[in-house]
Amino acid sequence: MYRSILIQADDFSLDRALTELKAQSGLAGGLCFFTGAVRNSNLDDAVGGLYLEHYPGMTERQLDQIVDEAARRWQLHGAIVVHRIGHLKPGDNIVLVAVSASHRGEAFEACEMIMDYLKTNATFWKKESIPDGHRWVEARSSDQAKATAWDA
């Protein structure tokens, strides 16, 4: 199975990810892509931008383990995870999860599981700029519930 896990400040290209996945996993009939972008408001405050931090070394390994878990559950041909760090503006891409499988069902589910685990298990933290200054974003219990549901 092909895999690529990247943590980078630079933007990513969906086109390039699609080409990469197709080139690396020719048998895939279903390719599912999820992209997360920076929102311009949170908790009723206007958000001017985000600063994203991670735990170098640990975060890369965690993403690798999350892809391992998806590959254990579904027959995947390839997976690409790209997560950006540093300063981002509203509308900027934050995260890309791209999964290829023989059929769409596996690709949809694996893509969703990888995102749900990433939200609750991977060591990234967001600080947002709001009109009053900055604040660290707090975790949502709804995200935890989504991730836990995969373990049921």
């Binding site: 997360g36 994203l52 991670h54 735990y55 640990m58 997560h83 934050i94 995260v95 995102m115 990433l118 939200k119 609750t120 298990n121 991977a122 060591t123 990234f124 933290w125 967001k126 660290w136 974003v137 707090e138 975790a139």
Partner: peptide, 10 residues
């Protein structure tokens, strides 16, 4: 050893 708040990536 690292101590940190709940993660908020994605």
């Amino acid at each position: 050893v690292a101590f940190f708040p709940p993660v908020t990536g994605g």
